[in-house]
Amino acid sequence: MSEMWQEAMIAAYREMMNRAVLFLPKLMAMVTFLLVGLAVGWLVKLLLMHILKVVRFEVFCERMGLTSALAKGGVKQRMSDLIGRFSFWVVFLFFAFMGVDALDLPATANLMSAILGFLPHVIAAILVGLLGILLANFSGEAVLIAAVNAQIQGARFMANMVRWGVIIFTGAMVLTQLGIAKEIVVAAFSIIFGGIVLAMAIAVGLGGRTIAKEALERRLRREKAGDEFTHI
């Protein structure tokens, strides 16, 4: 009985030691991946921020209204800092997932391939989001200035409508790109835009019928409330 117990203990100990011997290199590989990830991530961040500084990316963001758009959303950091930080985390997570994959655990067997497969969607969503914000600010600004120059009283309202319209449209595209509740997003988007168009149609058709008629008449008859002299 005692021998059997002894053999069982030794077998268990050997088994555990064998597993430990097999697992330790994997653990070390994971730690190495994490350390390399930290170093590479930091380097990429530094390099990227330097390049962005050289190409005056911050000035570009200010010009395109991206900085002010982020500030309105409560983000006080500079755009290049955000991109630097984001690049660090992307690189670090990439190495971290490689480390987890190196552990060869059954639970994380397909983690890396799944993440790599999803990464293009995330990058595309980020790009779509950034372009959307730029476009929204640009269009809003253009509409505001044009409406002010045309002396339309609701200039700011019109500009905000355009800006938020583009932002909502962008948000819907980002969510669709990420595959989050696709059907709901499409339905919600259709309802919101359809609703806005319907509301405007009713408003013009019922409330502003006379104004719309006069405006159309003026336009078609080319009647302009112009100045009494030419400016050039």
Binding site: V59, E62, R63, M64, G65, F138, E141, A142, I145, A146, V148, N149
Partner: peptide
């Protein structure tokens, strides 16, 4: 300095 888009800048001089 290209402070904002140039067309917008010029148009905003109008008022």
């Amino acid at each position: 300095e290209k402070a904002i888009h140039r067309e917008h800048l010029l148009r905003s001089l109008m008022p």
